[in-house]
Design a protein around this nucleic acid. Structure first.
Lengths: 232, 232
DNA sequence: CGGGAATTTTTTGTATACAATTTTTGATAC
DNA sequence: GTATCAAAAATTGTATACAAAAAATTCCCG
């Protein structure tokens, strides 16, 4: 049981040489994953003892990881009362999308100007993967495909700051997104919207990319707020 | 000497009841301050022993604080090689401003729509403080006045996400800003630009606020990139 | 039963000890 | 003098111990 979440001691993806990750990095990545995929519920209390058992790391390591995740807004810390998984109010969702709109729009516009031909091709591939995962209804694959798509978008726009800012807020709404996409109808709509965005990006059509970006954000915001309002 | 940086055990500002801050929070705040005001130079190696002596906190506490500051992009960590103060390349400055432009513009626009009358009055007061500190040439007061001004702006726009995103990137360029404002000519120009922004915010003139915001950002970006290119 | 105070248990805050790695030092050979 | 390599010192990665606070339980009294 111990270390069940800490498998990848070394990570040799993409053929690069294996990189040893410290226990702290592993624990941090594990906990982040558990939050993003909803395995740890929003608002849930995370005791350090429980996490040491799950991750196999000692408390000192753990607390560094938790401190990091708190800074990223995934955890909330209250003195002498420990950590809980950050929980979003409808108001926060609204604010996140209010921020995302101009930033993500900018990212899409910049992509049409700056992305390499290879990145354009990869957007195409990522969207195909997204389509298949959506049609199959596999939540895990849907998330990783979506991550792939946006990762290419953020890389192609050639701005690391935009990437960091957007990845941060998208991490924080990830658990809601998953719940949302378990609804086949919502999935259908999201696929349509993403398709428009992908098409515009591939055509390097700046105005269309902007429009598709905004349309998707408005739609997603509405769905998420509606969902979170029902859940509570 | 020990604990010289950790004075405010309790913090009773604004008449609120005193709040005990944990050692970790104090250490974190101290180190952050040292980075923001340039007391720790960009690129500088920070050994844990040195920081325990400065802050009086033990290593475990310290490492939590460092982990937090790393997540916020103020520190860079390399395995087995410790922490260094994050250093910005010209390219990063450019990217930060590319991100700031749409976000800060949005903040200014929202302020004109959403700020209370009291907040408008406070913007006025903050700008007066800024003017006096600029004319006096007191770097410390200039920074705190600028922080005050933007704090009111970010509060008045009623969007915590925008605040967090902008405070984060502004923290990271703070040390450059300080160097920049030691030049009286640059100070004069910055004051002029901030004055236009303040005037627009007070008049709740959305278009003027947008224009002033963009103008100031373009100007500041140019100055910072020029400066950083010379320094290296 | 129910409420509340005292006590136990759990949990978090903090400090320290040990192991692994990197950096520095210093001696030796050329 | 300098290049190289081994030993020593310093630094980071990790685990654990102790103290203080919060939460849970027990026990008493009505």
């Amino acid at each position: 049981m111990t270390q069940s979440l800490l498998d990848h001691r070394t990570d040799a993806r993409l053929g690069l040489e294996a990189v040893e990750r410290s226990l702290r990095e592993q624990a941090q990545a594990s906990i982040r994953e558990c939050i993003l995929n909803g395995h740890f519920a929003a608002g849930q209390k995370l005791t350090e003892r429980q996490l040491t058992e799950i991750t196999g790391a000692s408390r000192s390591i753990l607390r560094e990881a938790l401190s990091h995740l708190e800074a990223r807004g995934l955890l909330v810390r209250r003195t002498h009362r420990g950590f809980t998984v950050a929980k979003l109010e409808p108001r926060s969702i609204y604010e996140i999308f209010e921020l995302r709109e101009p930033v993500e729009t900018l990212a899409a516009e910049l992509f049409t100007e700056r992305a390499s031909e290879q990145e354009v091709a990869e957007i195409k591939a990522a969207f195909e993967a997204l389509k298949h995962s959506f049609q199959a209804g596999d939540l895990g694959k849907m998330r990783s495909a979506k991550e792939w798509f946006f990762s290419v978008l953020f890389t192609g726009c050639r701005n690391t700051e935009i990437r960091k800012a957007l990845e941060n807020v998208m991490d924080r709404i990830s658990y809601l997104r998953i719940q949302l996409l378990s609804d086949p109808q919502r999935r259908q709509l999201a696929l349509l919207e993403m398709g428009r965005l992908a098409k515009a990006l591939i055509a390097r059509d700046k105005d269309a990319a902007r429009a598709a970006s905004i349309a998707h954000l408005v739609s997603a915001r509405g769905a998420l707020i509606k969902q979170i309002s029902n859940n509570d």
